[in-house]
Simulated assay, not measured.
Amino acid sequence: MGTPLGDFIRARRDSVQPQSLGLPDRERRRAPGLRRSDLAARAGVSVEYLTRLEQGRDRNPSVAVVNALADALALDPPERDHLRHLSKITGGECVAQTEPAPPRRDVRPAVLRTLALLEPGIAMVTNRLGDVLARTGGFEAVARGTGLLDAPSPNLTRYVFTDPRARTSFTDWDEVADERAFELWCGPSAAGFASFTAELAPAAGSEFTRRLNGHVVPRRGPWRLHHPSGCELELIRETLELPDDAQQLVVLLPADEATARAVDGLIGRSSGRLRAV
C-alpha cells in the first residue's frame, strides 16, 4: 500500500521532463517523466531506497533526504512545503492513533467581531475541509443563487465536486477543484480529514479521488465567477490564517472596476448581515 508521500514523489517524477533538468533523453520510454534511477542519482540515494519510499515501504525519510529529493525534482517553494508536510504526516501513520476529533465549527467571538467590521465586504471564515462557518452579508449576496449556501451547513469542497451549478459558477472550475482537493492535505493531520473524504468520495467520484491522490499544488489565483444574475466577477483572495482554531478568514476583493460595480449592485439588493453557522 502506498502513502501520500510516495504518491507525491512518484507523481512529480512522472511529470518532470529529463531535458528540463539538463538530462539527456537517451531513448523513448514506455512511461513519461524522469527515470527512478535518474532521480535517485540526483538525490544521492539508492534506487532501492527510492523505490521503498514511492511504494510506502519506508515512511520515515530524514530531513536531509527530503531536501535532497526536493532539490532533485526542482520543486518550487509551495511544492517543497507540501513534500515536507507529507513526510511528517506519513511518518505518523505508523503510530497507533486515536479517533481524530472533528474540526471545530464554532468561531471565536473576536473573529466574528472582526468579520463584522468587514461588512459590507465579501468575507467568510472557513476551514481546510471547506466548511463555511461564518460569512458577511456581502458574501451571502455574491453567493446567492449559486447553490453554495443552499445546504444547512455549507461546504465549499462538497459544493465544487457534487453540485453541477459549481461548474457554471466557477469559470476556472478545474483549478478550483485542484485547490479544494489539495487543501484537504493541509490540515493538522492526515487522519483529520479521513471521515470527510470517505463520505465525499462516493458522491464526488473520480474527479475528486484523482485530484486528492495526484497532489497537484494549485496556483491559487483569483476566483472568476459567472454570477446567476449574468455579471462576470473576478475576485482577489486575501487569506488570514487562524492557526489556533485551524480556520481561515478569507476576504474577497474586486479585481477590477467592472467587478466592483457588479458587487455594489449585488450587495445593494441585499439586507447585508453577518451569518455564523
Rank of each mutant, 00 (worst) to 15 (best):
A177M: 05
S195A: 15
S229M: 03
W185A: 11
P152K: 05
S169Y: 13
S169T: 15
P164W: 09
E183Y: 00
G214S: 06
P188L: 07
W173A: 12
R167V: 01
A141C: 02
N213P: 00
V160M: 12
E199K: 11
Y159P: 09
H215L: 05
H215M: 05
T146M: 14
D163F: 03
R180Q: 15
V217D: 00
A177R: 03
L156R: 10
R144M: 06
F170E: 11
T146Q: 15
L156H: 09
R220G: 01
G145M: 10
L184A: 05
F196Q: 14
F208S: 10
E207G: 04
G221V: 02
H215R: 11
V217I: 06
L156P: 00
A194D: 15
T157S: 14
D174H: 06
A177H: 01
R219G: 05
G205L: 03
L184K: 07
W173T: 13
Y159I: 12
L148N: 08
P228L: 04
P228T: 10
F161V: 08
L148S: 11
A191Y: 02
E175W: 00
A181T: 03
R224W: 01
G221D: 12
D178I: 01
D174K: 03
A141I: 03
F193G: 05
P228I: 04
C186I: 00
R211M: 04
A198F: 01
T157M: 10
F208G: 10
F161A: 10
G205H: 05
P188N: 06
L184R: 05
N213M: 13
R220P: 02
F196C: 11
S195Q: 15
C186L: 13
P222F: 05
P218K: 03
A143K: 06
N155M: 09
G221C: 08
G205Q: 08
R158Y: 03
P152M: 03
A204K: 13
C186W: 06
R167P: 05
S229I: 03
E183G: 02
L212D: 02
R220D: 09
L156D: 09
G147D: 14
F193W: 12
L149K: 09
H227Y: 03
P202D: 13
R158H: 08
E207Q: 07
E207W: 00
S229N: 09
P228G: 08
P202V: 09
T209N: 04
R220E: 09
P152C: 04
F182E: 06
A151I: 06
A191P: 01
F170T: 07
H215W: 00
T197Y: 02
N213I: 01
Y159H: 14
S169P: 02
R220I: 00
T209Q: 04
G147I: 14
V176G: 11
R167S: 05
R180M: 15
P154C: 12
V160F: 04
L149V: 14
L149F: 13
P164T: 13
H227E: 06
